[in-house]
C-alpha cells in the first residue's frame, strides 16, 4: 500500500514528523530542566538566562545523600587534603559533612524517605490491583445483586477530590494511631486506587471469554484453580496496565503524605521540597532528588511497556 506515495504525501509526512518533534520537545523540556539542574554547580542553577553549557558535576547528589552544616571557618589545607573527593565538594560549597562522635558520615533523610516511598507505593499497588482483580472477576462472572448500584458506589469514591476529606481523615488517623505509619499511607493509597482498579480490571475481565474457565472446570479444576491457571494469565495485560497507573498515583501522591506523615513514614514527595527550608534554597539538590525520584516509575513503565501498549487500547485484546 505504501509503495505508491506522491511527493505531496511525502512532504506532508515530513511536516508531521517535524510537528511531533516540536511537541515532544515541549513535553520533555521540564525533564531536561530538572536533569540539567541536577548536575549544575550551585551558582549556575538560578542564572538568567539559564546556563546551558556547563561542566557537569555530581556535587548535588553528594549533598542530597549527606547531612551537612554551614562552615563557620573554612577548612585548613590539611583538612581539605585529607578529605575524600566527595567531601571536598561539600567544602567547596561552603558547608561541611556532619559526622557522629566516631567520625561516621551522617546520611541525609533522603534515602529513608525514598525507601518509604517504595514500600508504600509497592504494597499499596499490590493490594489495590489484587483486590481490584478479584472484585472485577466477581462482578464480571457472577450475578451480583445490585451490581449496577455497587459499581456506581465504587466509582463514586472518585467523584470527590480526596483532599476534601484530608482533615477528618487526619483526625481519624491520629485517633487510631495511624498517622506517620507505613500502614496508614498504604491503606489510604489502596483506597484511592481500588475503585480505579476495579473498573479497569472489569473491562479486561469482560473481554476474556468465560469459555476458557468453563473448559477448565469441566476438565476437573476448581473455580480457584481455573482462575489462577487460565484467567490470570489472560488478564496479565490488564493487570500490568492497572498496576502502572496505581503505582504512579501512589508514588506521586503529595497532599496526604504531607499531612499524614512527618518523619518515620514520610515519603519522598513532601520531603524533597522541605529541603528548601533551611538557609538559601539549593535548587541543585532538589533537582537531584527529583531526578532520582522519577526513575522508579520510568523503570517500572519501561519493564511493562509491551503489556501497556496492548493494555491501554481497550478492546484491542486478541479474542
Amino acid at each position: 500500500m505504501a509503495a505508491v506515495t506522491t511527493s505531496t504525501e511525502r512532504s506532508l509526512n515530513r511536516l508531521a514528523i517535524v510537528g511531533v518533534l516540536i511537541v515532544t520537545m515541549i513535553f520533555l523540556a521540564p525533564i531536561y530542566w530538572i536533569a540539567s539542574t541536577a548536575f549544575k554547580p550551585r551558582n549556575l542553577s538560578t542564572t538568567i538566562p539559564p546556563t546551558v553549557v556547563f561542566t557537569p558535576e555530581v556535587s548535588p547528589f553528594v549533598k542530597l545523600f549527606t547531612k551537612r552544616s554551614q562552615l563557620r571557618t573554612p577548612p585548613t589545607p590539611e583538612e581539605y587534603a585529607a578529605a575524600p573527593w566527595w567531601e571536598r565538594m561539600v567544602f567547596d560549597g561552603g558547608e561541611k559533612v556532619v559526622r557522629d562522635g566516631k567520625g561516621n558520615v551522617q546520611w541525609s533523610g533522603y534515602p529513608s524517605r525514598f525507601m518509604n516511598s517504595l514500600i508504600v507505593a509497592i504494597v499499596s499497588t499490590i493490594l489495590a490491583v489484587g483486590m481490584g482483580t478479584l472484585t472485577a472477576y466477581g462482578f464480571s462472572r457472577f450475578k451480583v445483586k445490585g451490581e449496577g448500584d455497587l459499581l456506581f458506589f465504587i466509582l463514586s469514591t472518585r467523584m470527590l477530590p480526596p483532599v476534601v476529606v484530608a482533615i477528618p481523615m487526619f483526625l481519624m488517623y491520629r485517633a487510631v494511631g495511624l498517622n506517620d505509619t507505613h500502614l496508614g499511607l498504604i491503606i489510604l493509597y489502596t483506597a484511592f486506587n481500588l475503585s480505579f482498579s476495579v473498573w479497569l480490571m472489569k473491562g479486561f475481565m469482560d473481554e476474556i471469554p468465560k469459555e476458557y474457565e468453563e473448559a477448565a472446570l469441566v476438565d476437573g479444576y476448581t473455580r480457584m484453580q481455573a482462575f489462577f491457571k487460565v484467567v490470570l494469565p489472560e488478564a496479565a495485560t490488564g493487570i500490568a496496565a492497572t498496576a502502572v497507573f496505581c503505582f504512579i498515583t501512589a508514588w506521586n501522591e503529595y497532599a496526604f503524605a504531607l499531612i499524614m506523615t512527618n518523619r518515620r513514614a514520610q515519603t519522598a514527595p513532601p520531603f524533597i521540597p522541605s529541603q528548601v527550608g533551611s538557609g538559601l534554597p539549593d535548587w541543585t539538590v532538589i533537582a537531584a532528588g527529583t531526578l532520582l525520584f522519577l526513575l522508579p516509575v520510568a523503570i517500572f513503565t519501561f519493564l511493562l511497556r509491551n503489556h501497556l501498549l496492548r493494555g491501554v487500547t481497550f478492546g484491542a485484546i486478541r479474542k
Binding site: P209, E211, Y212, E214, A215, A216, L217, V218, D219, G220, Y221, T222, V230, P233, E234, R318, K319
Partner: peptide, 20 residues
C-alpha cells in the same frame, strides 16, 4: 455435583483452547 466431578468432556464451537 460440580462440573469437575461429573467427568464429562466438553467441546465448544470456539474458545475452548487455552491460547497461551
Amino acid at each position: 455435583w460440580g462440573a469437575a466431578e461429573r467427568d464429562v468432556a466438553l467441546v465448544l464451537q470456539q474458545y475452548s483452547l487455552y491460547p497461551r
